[in-house]
Design a protein around this nucleic acid. Structure first.
Length: 466
RNA sequence: GGCGACGUGGCCAAGUGGCUAAGGCAAGGGUCUGCAAAACCCUGAUCAUGGGUUCAAAUCCCAUCGUCGCCUCCA
């Protein structure tokens, strides 16, 4: 079976072939750190975390780079407004974001470079572009000459002529072409600045990613990812810069996730309709957002609302239910039942790979997992023992962890607490035997309030953490 | 105005030329149960609309309506 990936460059699914056998180099655009991150950023990070986990499951060694843009106009503006140092401002948001990544169980990237730490590389690259005639200097600014790049527009499917016709940007008369974009911006007094051959200034937005790619992954990479709002101009410009500089094709696969939609509109800092990651985590467990992401195709817009979150949370609970222990008094399942269970294991494994191989079809993969949970539940209901359920549970656990989900709740109790709960269950059993429903229900309700769920069955009572 | 994506049962959402259109949530009926919870069994869509191509279309083409994204900072 082969993995197929939808490539924005070409707008179709392609067979996934890496530059170096068994290895994947992947660069994902991280946030610009000028304010608190919102769940749209989390979505993007989750999408690429899932992709990475699956690639590793398929046996690839993944070198994963995610940057932080820690110097740009917005950061400077905001820092000025707040009267704080722009670097300190960015630093704070970076720390916060890194904590969020941990909360969401997003595997740490191999490297997290920052624009401000890569100045020599950035300047060197700009100089190279100037030397080759792809860039020119005006009053301390340096611009990329788009007309010099015959392929400009190939990623976003735009033509220079069309864009010029519809351009709404204020035309900067100093530019040769209105679409020329800044590689280097001259600094105004009081702004963060670095010395360069063109005077003191700071890098433009796009060049940092090109420089960091070059520094940490090389001239050519396998996957370049980010939100689909970055296709133009950011990624288009990255391609232009890097390919003009190296003379080689840059990224083999361009992967873009869809936007998270709140009330039918893109969640974004500028519109202001956002839910910060902090707010989300105060209300929900991290896996709920991951589940929401998994439930649909990564390229589609993702509908977000509290009621949809409730829905996926219930679904997550169902998956977790597959991990439950045998029923009290389980005597072993029938031969046929165990056969079905074994067949279910094979089916879910092949189905999972089949779905994920098709451009990371996580929704399809989840469907198979839900089917599998049903098979497990059927076996349990028929009396399968823990020993008989063991390999099925291991399979469920393995596959869900490829998606980054954690099904088993961390134990919050202790052996002593377990003993106390067992004692209460025993007392309750006696109460029930004497039809003292008020007292027995009180025990159940009070335990439930503490997060301990009792489940009665004919054979006895079992319990679990909620 | 230009470019692109999308419109599948109440909700979320797979499937993109061919067996009975996955799965989850919600709803209804049933089994179990003192009640509850969990679990199991059963029940619903012909795929925005109108044309067309084809032996065959949700899946390809055209038109219409609607939604969204990008074209300016944006995951």
């Amino acid at each position: 079976m082969t993995l197929k990936v939808y490539n924005t460059l070409g707008r179709k699914k392609e067979e996934f072939k890496t530059l170096h056998s068994g290895k994947v180099s992947m660069y994902v655009c991280g946030p610009t750190v000028y304010s608190k991150a919102h769940i749209g950023h989390a979505m993007s990070a989750l999408v690429f975390d899932i992709i990475r986990r699956y690639l590793e499951y398929r046996g690839y060694e993944v070198r994963h780079v995610m940057n932080f843009t820690d110097v740009d106009d917005k950061i400077i503006l905001r820092a000025k407004k707040m009267g704080v140092d722009p670097f300190a401002l960015g630093e704070g948001y970076i720390h916060e974001f890194e904590q969020h990544l941990k909360d969401f169980k997003i595997l740490p990237a191999t490297v997290n470079p920052r624009a401000t730490h890569e100045m020599p590389e950035i300047i060197e690259m700009i100089q190279g572009l100037v030397d080759k005639g792809y860039a020119y200097q005006v009053d301390g600014d340096v611009y990329f000459r788009v007309e010099k790049d015959a392929h400009y527009g190939k990623l976003s499917g735009r033509k220079l002529d069309d864009m010029q016709a519809g351009a709404r940007v204020d035309v900067d008369e100093r530019k040769e072409n209105p679409m020329d974009f800044a590689l280097w911006k001259a600094a105004k007094p009081g702004e963060p600045a670095w010395e360069s051959p063109w005077g003191s200034g700071r890098p433009g937005w796009h060049i940092e990613c090109s420089a960091m790619n070059l520094a940490y992954l090389g001239e050519q990479i396998d996957i370049h990812g980010g939100g689909n709002d970055l296709i133009f101009p950011h990624h288009e410009n990255e391609i232009a810069q890097t390919e003009s500089f190296t003379g080689k094709p840059f990224a083999r696969y361009w992967i873009h996730n869809g936007m998270l939609q709140l009330m039918g509109e893109k969640m974004s800092k500028s519109i202001g309709n956002l839910v910060t990651i902090e707010e989300f985590l105060s209300l929900h467990s991290p896996d709920v957002l991951r589940m929401l992401v998994l439930n649909s195709g990564y390229r589609n817009p993702l509908s977000y609302s509290e009621s949809i979150l409730d829905q996926v949370e219930s679904g997550l609970e169902r998956l977790r239910g597959g991990m439950k222990c045998q029923l009290p008094g389980a005597k072993g399942a029938s031969e046929q039942c165990l056969k079905d269970l074994a067949a279910g294991i094979e089916r879910v494994k092949t189905g999972f790979v089949e779905a994920m191989d098709d451009d990371f079809n996580t929704a399809g993969a989840l469907g198979g997992l839900f089917d599998f949970v049903k098979v497990i539940n059927q076996a349990r209901a028929e009396g399968a023992t823990d020993a008989e359920l063991k390999s099925a549970r291991a399979t469920l656990c393995e596959l869900t962890s490829v998606l980054g989900l954690t099904l088993e709740k961390e134990k919050t109790g202790s052996a002593q607490l377990d003993g106390v709960v067992d004692l209460l269950i025993e007392i309750r059993r006696d109460l029930r035997a004497n039809k003292l429903w008020v007292l027995s229900d009180k025990i159940r309700d009070r335990l439930a309030a503490m997060g301990i769920l009792l489940e009665d069955s004919k054979e006895g009572t079992s319990w679990r953490w909620q």
